[in-house]
Structures are given as C-alpha cells and as structure tokens.
Design a protein around this nucleic acid. Structure first.
Lengths: 315, 315
DNA sequence: ACGACCGATTGATTTTTCTTATAAAAAATG
DNA sequence: CATTTTTTATAAGAAAAATCAATCGGTCGT
C-alpha cells in the first residue's frame, strides 16, 4: 500500500469516475485502474462497485476512503511541520468565502495579507456555505469564512467578528417612524429576501421565525444582491435587512432609511473555518490575525444576539 | 514521500544505526541510506545528525519521526478495517506480560484463547513494565498485561482484575499470631523483596512507605522469584508479600503461614494495556473478554485499595 | 597506526509505475 | 435495434524507482 494509491482511491471516490479522477490526479486512466486494482488485490477486497453507474463505494470501500483521507492528511502534515520549522509561510492556500461576506470583508484585509505574506498564493473562491463545508471536508479548501455556528464534527470554527443586522425601511413603510426597531416589529411576509442558498437569507428567516410571524407561503420577490433589495425597497415593495458592513456602502441620501436594532441587536457570527486536522495551521493563523487586526477598528459589536445561519428543516 | 520511507526513518531512529535498522527492515543498508537521503532532499531538511555517534535525530527530525509513527499507525489501521469487515480475527499479535503475572494468569486463559481464536499467532514475551511501555509506544508490542495505574499519555489501560497482597509470615515471626494483618503492621526493613525492576517490589515498597516505616537503607536480601522468597522466609529471614494468585500454588503444609489483610486489602490492579491508536482492537477485545471470562470465577476481589506500581523518585 | 565499525557511493539488476494502444462492456443516441 | 459514445480493463513496452553487492572513506578505540 502506498500513499499514492490512497490518493488515487480518494480521487476516484470523489469523482465517481476513473477518467475524471485520472485528469485530476494528472495520470492516465489505466494507471488508476491498475493501482486501485493492485490495492484491492493486496487487501483482498473490492473498494468500488463498478457495476453501478456512476461507480459506487462498497461498504468496506467507504470505510477505507475515510481512513485514506486520514492518512493523506497526516502525510501532508509532514510538509507543514517542515514549513513551520523553517519559519516558512507560503505555498498555495485555498480560501472559500460566502457571497454576503466577500465584497465587504475581503477589501479590508486582502492588501494587508498579501503584503505581509507575499509567499502565500491565495486562491479565493466565493461559495455558498454548503459547498464550503463539502470542500473543507474533502480537503479541497484550506479554510473558509462563513456565518456560524455550524457545529460540524470535522470542522473547527474561530469567530472573527459579530455583524449586526440592520433594517432598511423605505419612507412609506409602516415602521418608518420607529427609530430603534426590535425583532418583534418584523414581519417575514413584508421582508425582501436574498434568493435561496444564501445563509444570510436563512438567518433572516430564523430571526423572524422566533417572532412567530412566519407563514409558509412562497415569496415571489427574491434577489441575489443587497443592492437590488435596497432598490426594491425604495420602490415600496417592502423592507429588508442588511448585514452591518453592507450599510457602510449605502448612498448618503439613503442612509436615513437605515434603522438599527435595539441592543442586543440580532447579528451573525462570522468565523474562520478549517478542517479539524489543522493542516496549514500557520497560514490559517496568519490569516486570522490579519483579519482580526483590521476588524478590530471597523466592527466591534459585542452586545448582540447571534442568529443561526442554518436553514431550519420545515416538516 | 512514501510510507516505506517513513518506516525506514522509524527504524533508523529506533536503532540509532543504519546497519541494524537495515536488518530489522529486511533490506540492505544502502537502501536505507538512499531512501532516507531522498526523503531529506525532498523535504530539504536533515532528519538525522550523522556526525554524532551514535546517530541522533535533529530537532525537526524528531518531529518528523513522531508524525511518521502517526502515519504508519494510521496506514496499518487499513488492514485492521479490512479484517474487521471480514470478521477475521488473526495474524501475529505480540503480547507483553510482566514477570509476576506471567506464571499465574497465563495458564488460566491461554488454552481458552488459542482454541477460540486459532488464527491469532500469539507471541508472548515476559518483560518488565519499563520495557513494555517503550515497546507499546514504538509499536513493537500490540498489547501487554501489567500492573496499573500508569497513566501514560499514549497508552490506554483496561483493568482486568484486582489482586490483593497476601502476607507470608513464618512461624517464629513477631506477626505470626495475628490473623488478619493491616498495613500498619508492616515494616519494610523486615520484608523480603523481589529484586529491582519488578513493579511488584515497587508496589510493596509504596505500600510500606504509606506507613512511614521506610528507611533509606539497602536491602541485602532480594530474589527474582516468589518461591525463593518463601524459602528465605521459612529460614527465618523475614516475612514477605505475595500476589493472591501466587498463594494458590503454595504447598499445603505452608498455607498456614498465609495471612490475608483486613479489608480493604491492599491490592494491585492488573490491566490490559494498548496503544491509544487502538490498532488490532478486535484482537485486543478478544483477549480482554477471554481473560475476563476466566478471571470472573477465580478472582473477584472488589473491596481493595489499589497500590501504585510506580517506583517513587527518591531525591 | 591498525583494524573495526559505519554510513555513503557506485553500478548493475530487478521491480514498479506509468503510458500508449486497444479491447470489452455498458450507456446513450438516433 | 444498430450505432456511437462513454467508460473501465487489459496488454505491452518504456521510463522511473528501488534494491542489492561491492566498495569507498571517514571515525573511533586500542
């Protein structure tokens, strides 16, 4: 058994396809076929059920894949140990960021980070929370920034900041005259929401749900950007909620429509996520401290009530 | 980097010698030299300081060795997973047993075990606790039976039974007329002890120490077997303490010299030890349940006070 | 200084891995 | 239902690697 064979197994398991896995691992398909067969012969078991299309793991196969991921992770850690010893902070680092954090947080720390750690080749991808979790678990992301708490078995969370929800209430709206609003004022049916898949949307739904205003009807007005939501609100189609950092970009003429919540304001917790194996921990720590540094001046809300970003299973 | 290279590194680190490590790994010495050099080149560090005699690990080298042991353990677990899936309990299994447990416990369960699990090739070695710990940590033993608690970072303990100490007091001894003796009656200076290195000896010393009878003088009478101790006692050279199971072998004519302690009697805890990685756990569990089965009828003391088997550091 | 010991080096040999080309089987297409 | 496409397996040769026997060169102890 070799580490290479284990990597091949992982690639095939993830792609459910020898040919695609071969491309990903930069070898030809027969190489994969042969090496995996060799491993199966050595262990005297079948890892893959090739009769199914697409290919599937056998029972024992999925156990082996779990352990293989373990072994490959531990093997990668050798390079980490060497880097740490050398004081080297560099190499490719893949960071995932959720869409509602990306445009506000990234500009705040990115320049700082690449100046301070020029050897790190940062690859940043905007991804929904769901994809972030998958990729972290499969080791295709080194870290991610997302709303928490997620409380996942294999993923550690390190809070970066708490970002309050801020209401945007247009002129003719019934709540317009209330200065400091409360959760009780909210009505989900009157709320302009991001389209499905955004965890901020789920956060808003959870927030309103706690107020029991929720009715299980379909919302016809949904959008992918806060800018659109604000415009729709201006058109009198309802109010909306924005994360605090997004309110800094609002036009001066529209700032008057922003209403902060009474403390403790509902807020989302934004955290740095990484796999529990703590691979590339030096870079993760460098990232965390860089972000913590810039965030310290810009966003320091503490007296908040954290709203879960998880969609609730509606039965 | 390959698993083979890591195994070679471990072998050289353990033997502090390329030539010996080569024998252990069944390859020639140049193979080790080259593969280890290759790994050092790849990582661009030195694992071994070859200028020292015997060879030593560098700082980074010892970190790599720790991680390499990890990886190799995790790699071995693949075979475990496969065995478990197949319901196969077999293969070589190395068990260490301390000398004062070996002759009494082994005959009780060995026949049972090899009947029940004929495919397990049990290799049993009588070893002092110290060696057992080393070998468990380096993975050269799969499990061991020894007196506990040891409370070691990398080794798990699973108690098998509690074995009370029993006093053997010859006719002319001052305590001879006391039926149920107590710890307070003991005087270490009057005690015949096993030679150094036996944890049972340390247990007895600890027991007496708690009574503050300890004086830091050298004991001139020490032996490697309980049989000798009993004979010396018969000659009037003092009393001695025996583990309960050993008293079952005492001649009928000498049984009258056995004195049990008042409850809670001092006792040693005898446990099954194994590495925290829990490799070959199926066999370990098979062993544990077999021993638990035979022990259940023979030795069921519960109201006991456990005496530490660890030698106390005398400053 | 001499021999014993020990790790590194060399060059031949074997083993392993990988690739190209192709077969075989299954799935998708018309 | 035949044909094309997709996908995995197999075969054979090329490339890479691991291993070995023999030997070198340095260090240590006597």
């Amino acid at each position: 058994m070799t580490i290479t064979q284990l990597k091949y197994v992982l690639a095939v398991a993830e792609n459910q396809n020898f040919t695609k896995a071969a491309e990903k691992t930069f070898v030809t398909q027969p190489t994969l076929s042969m090496q995996i067969q060799k491993l199966e012969d050595e262990l005297d078991i079948l890892i893959f059920d090739r009769s199914k299309k697409p290919i599937e793991l056998t029972d024992i196969g999925s156990k082996i894949v779990t352990q293989a991921r373990n072994i490959v992770n531990e093997a990668n850690r050798i390079a980490d140990i060497v880097d740490q010893q050398k004081g080297f902070i560099g190499g490719e680092f893949k960071l995932g960021v959720i869409p509602t954090v990306m445009p506000t947080l990234l500009p705040m720390f990115l320049r700082n980070f690449i100046n301070k750690y020029p050897k790190v080749k940062l690859k940043i991808e905007e991804l929904p929370t769901e994809t972030i979790i998958e990729r972290l678990e499969e080791g295709h992301l080194d870290a991610a920034i997302a709303a928490t708490p997620l409380q996942l078995e294999n993923i550690k969370e390190r809070p970066l900041y708490y970002e309050p929800f801020v209401a945007y209430i247009p002129e003719n709206h019934s709540l317009h005259n209330i200065q400091k609003i409360t959760v009780a004022d909210l009505d989900l049916n009157d709320m302009l929401l991001l389209e499905d898949g955004h965890c901020f949307r789920d956060g808003v739904v959870n927030l309103c749900k706690t107020n029991r205003n929720y009715e299980d009807e379909t919302f016809s007005l949904e959008s992918g950007s806060f800018e659109t939501l604000v415009r729709l609100a201006n058109e009198g189609l309802g109010m909306t909620l924005l994360p605090y950092l997004h309110t800094l970009d609002i036009k001066d003429t529209e700032k008057k429509y922003l209403h902060h919540f009474k403390e403790p304001a509902p807020a989302r917790e934004v955290s740095l996520l990484y796999h529990k194996s703590e691979l590339k921990m030096q870079i993760i720590e460098a990232l965390r401290s860089t972000i913590a540094g810039v965030v310290k001046g810009a966003i320091t809300f503490q007296n908040v009530e954290i709203i879960s970003p998880l969609p609730q299973k509606s039965k």
